[in-house]
Design a binder for these strands. Structure first.
Length: 140
DNA sequence: ACGCTGACCCTAC
DNA sequence: TGTAGGGCCAGCG
């Protein structure tokens, strides 16, 4: 749980943004950071997910925030800690139809070309007519 | 209050 | 193609 109001706002922004990632799609920590206007803080996005609670009485919890749809920029499910919650994340993704492959070193990978979700801005903002935070030309 | 850690990412050799 | 280093900053000792 974040202490300062600023951190709280950041956590809220992160969780809200992640909730907009469509079922069966994946995006990256860095992209979430950019979508919410803090492109230099992909790390803190990870912090937010780490602190995601299973307590359903909380506004945000692992039941209403699709944490499994956030992976790193290389398309790999970030390994962390013991046995790797990554394996669990892979299962959650497979459960929604995402193909997760295993590399030679045991990395759990997802094909961005197939499942990647990288909009210029959050769908909710687009619907509200808010100007995009990310200005881009192409992106293939 | 201080220092280290870490679900990351980009730029340089 | 692969390795190193810097930036980021909330948690936790």
């Amino acid at each position: 749980m974040p202490r300062t109001d600023e951190a709280k706002a950041f956590f809220h922004a992160v969780y809200s943004a992640i909730q907009e990632v469509p079922h069966g799609k994946v995006t990256s920590y860095g992209h979430i950071a950019r979508l919410i206007g803090t492109p230099q803080r992909p790390r803190q996005v990870g912090v937010c997910l780490k602190h995601l609670s299973s307590d359903t009485s909380q506004t945000f919890h692992n039941g209403n925030v699709p944490w499994q749809r956030v992976i790193n920029s290389k398309g790999i499910i970030s390994p962390r800690g013991y046995p790797s919650g990554a394996a669990n994340q892979a299962q959650a993704l497979r459960g929604e139809g995402v193909t997760v492959t295993t590399g030679n070193l045991g990395e759990l990978m997802v094909d961005f070309a197939e499942y990647g979700w990288f909009p210029r801005q959050l769908p909710s903002e687009e619907a509200a007519g808010i100007a995009p935070l990310i200005d881009s030309d192409d992106e293939g």
